[in-house]
Nucleic acid binder design. Structure first.
Length: 298
DNA sequence: CGCCAGGCAAAAG
DNA sequence: CTTTTGCATGGC
């Protein structure tokens, strides 16, 4: 078990801010200390806050070299987010509230291919439904991996001793499946979109790695050539898969925020980091909406 | 059961 | 060019 000290890092804010679909709460060490399961790039990690320490203390189920070589960058911990939080000055009380609430958000460095397919799936689906379909798509290969978690099980017997997980399928793997197989995961009318993207990526017609060097505009343009990829899916892929921090996915939530708080136009000074600011706004806006839903129920 | 979900492409105006 | 419509399926 790795003991870590990390500033400005909140697992819940990362997991629930709509950027990833395979980071989920597995259980908890004790009340208030949820353990998160993170599946990324063929790996699986359990991580939680450390009940023995303060808010900057974390426990991670990996080696120090795994943490340094992969997860540190994956969680974007080499970047100072106070720079972004400082965009909230006294003139923008709404952004201040968002920054306060979402302190500890990080924009993960996720795999571009996984982001492209995940966000193609995401259209007209709820987040729980997206998670289900993505997991089923990963399980199609049947190539299960096992993670030993006896150290976690010893800390709390309610936590499992081991976990079976499936890496996200690469383009070549997806391209081999027939439409019935893909569709059996719940992709519905997006089945054809996924198959075409898999074909193009596996034949090299779409070289995802090569897109890294393109400008933001050129990258969006390339992604938009794909069937089933509109401006929202392209922006999400560019922001979450290529770390293009100026790009803001304009979904129903952000359109609402832009109208209600910025009279329909983002401030010019926000533009270079709008993708990051958006992440805090999205997290806050969705939380407020959930609160309202509970109010309506009662 | 009925409604709607982090949109998109294609048809219609 | 702008607006409207149909869409597969799962979660609640």
């Amino acid at each position: 078990m790795l003991h870590l000290r990390i500033d400005d890092f909140d697992l819940r804010a990362v997991a629930e801010s709509g950027q990833c679909f395979r980071m989920t709460e597995l259980g908890s060490l004790k009340p208030g200390y949820p353990v998160y399961k993170v599946i990324a790039s063929g790996r699986c990690l359990l991580i939680s806050g450390d009940p023995q320490g303060d808010e900057h203390s974390f426990l991670a189920g990996c080696t120090e070299s795994e943490w340094d070589d992969f997860y540190k960058d994956y969680f974007d911990l080499n970047r100072d987010y106070s720079i972004y939080r400082n965009y909230a000055d006294e003139k923008d009380s709404f952004l201040q509230r968002c920054m306060d609430y979402g302190k500890g958000i990080r924009i993960l460095n996720q795999d571009p291919w996984e982001m492209l397919i995940s966000f193609i799936i995401s259209q007209r689906k709820s987040v729980p439904a997206i998670r289900t379909t993505v997991e089923r798509l990963c399980a199609l290969s049947g190539e299960e991996k096992k993670l030993d978690c006896t150290v976690w099980h010893e800390l709390n017997p309610a936590l499992p001793e081991s976990i079976v997980y499936y890496p996200f399928p690469d383009a070549e793997t997806l391209a081999k499946y027939g439409p019935e197989e893909i569709n059996s995961t719940g992709t519905g009318y997006r089945t054809g979109y996924i198959m075409e993207a898999a074909r193009k990526a596996s034949t090299g017609e779409l070289g995802l790695c090569g897109l890294q060097k393109l400008s933001d505009e050129e990258l969006l343009e390339k992604l938009l050539e794909l069937q089933g990829v509109g401006i929202k899916v392209a922006s999400c892929t560019a922001l979450f898969g290529f770390h293009r921090l100026s790009l803001c996915p304009e979904d129903v939530w952000m359109k609402r925020v832009k109208e209600q708080h910025y009279s329909g136009e983002w401030p010019e000074s926000y533009r270079p980091v709008l993708g990051v600011l958006q992440q805090y706004m999205f997290y806050y806006a969705r939380l407020e909406h959930e609160k309202d839903q509970i109010k309506i129920k009662n």
